[in-house]
Amino acid sequence: MVTADSTVDIDTSAVAAKVTRRLGLQALGLAGEGVDFVVYHVGSKTLGDLALRIPRHRRYIAPYGQVDAADLVRQEHEIAGRLAQHGLPVSAPVDLVTCEDGLLVSLARYVPSDGRPVPGQDIGAFLARLHQVEPWPVRLAYQAPGDFGEFLVSRVHDRHKALSRHAPDLPELPDGAVLRDVMDHEDSAARLLHLDIRRQNLLGTGGRLAAVVDWSNALMGPPLMELARVCEYALLPDNGLNAEAVLEGYMATDGQQLDTWSAAALLNRLDTALMLALVFHSVAPDPARARDLTHRSRHLLKRLNAAL
């Protein structure tokens, strides 16, 4: 889980006004906003409609240290640029802009969206194509160095410990060595994972996927992690996902069927459920959802213990 350093909040509307004036752009309104970034629709006489992406904070706090917002801006810019070369639907990058105070923001192609749901099969096909892209040495802000299995097991342990403070009756987590063995037997090659697939990050028109945005949570890891997260995200109606349709589209494009209830999948599902429970306990307090996601974490812990 990542939290923002509230001591360095950014007035994104003021930044947007300064950037548009400086670059001679036309302000066309708010395009979207999330926990980490605010996106403005701007117009250029030479480049047409663009998306101006501005971080809400100068740095974010991850379990293994602080992450500079500039690293997230560069990450989005590089990933979108590489995936655009592969013909994947993204908001293609245009430029990185350094403000007078050193804040880094980005410009990308503006992708209109009418808010209609994107079919799960299209989402699954996108993920299958994404996971076919050969990895390259991109610096990912939230990926700890070293072995991925060690990283995931350590993260699950930390999240379990944090949630136990809110729910002391949470079932015990299996031994770390056992969990590392589970990850060691996950034989798929590491691929770029989006890890925040949900309605808010899926732009489309006419019910067709036009672009997948917000690559802040991206990691290099096993594709099963992505699909397990989609399955858990789909349990929240606001995310607008049909897990069965996504898996159907994935299998139709990739040709392989991954077991989303294997021990490794359960560990990845648990990682997601713990994260969501903690979000609704503290980052975005919602008592009802915190209760439901804590209950979900208990259920997955019992299933994982039984599977091992």
Rank of each mutant, 00 (worst) to 15 (best):
W215F: 15
R191L: 02
W215R: 01
L192A: 04
L202Y: 07
M225L: 14
D187N: 10
L193C: 03
I197Y: 03
L192K: 02
Q200K: 13
A190P: 12
D214H: 08
N201H: 15
A228G: 12
D214S: 05
N201C: 03
E186D: 14
L195G: 06
D187A: 13
V212W: 12
E186K: 01
R229V: 13
R199S: 15
G204D: 12
L227T: 12
T205S: 12
R198P: 09
S216I: 02
A218M: 02
D187C: 11
Q200N: 07
L227K: 02
L203E: 08
D214N: 10
N201A: 09
D196G: 05
D214L: 05
L195Y: 13
E232T: 14
A211W: 07
A210R: 12
N201Q: 03
R191E: 05
I197S: 01
P223A: 06
R229T: 15
G207D: 07
E226V: 03
A218L: 03
S216W: 04
M225P: 00
P223T: 08
R229W: 11
G204I: 13
L192C: 09
M225C: 11
L192T: 12
P222N: 11
A211C: 04
P223I: 09
R229M: 15
E226N: 02
V213Q: 09
E232P: 04
H185C: 05
E186R: 02
L209S: 10
V212M: 05
E232W: 02
A218C: 13
D184N: 12
H194V: 07
M225H: 09
T205W: 01
W215Y: 14
R199L: 01
E232H: 01
P222K: 05
H194L: 11
E186I: 08
A228K: 09
T205N: 08
R199Q: 15
A210L: 02
R199D: 14
S188W: 10
A228E: 10
D214G: 04
N201S: 11
I197L: 13
A211M: 08
H185W: 11
R208I: 00
L202I: 14
V212N: 06
G206E: 12
D196E: 14
P222A: 14
A189H: 10
D214I: 04
D184I: 00
S188L: 09
L195M: 13
L219K: 02
D196T: 07
A190K: 07
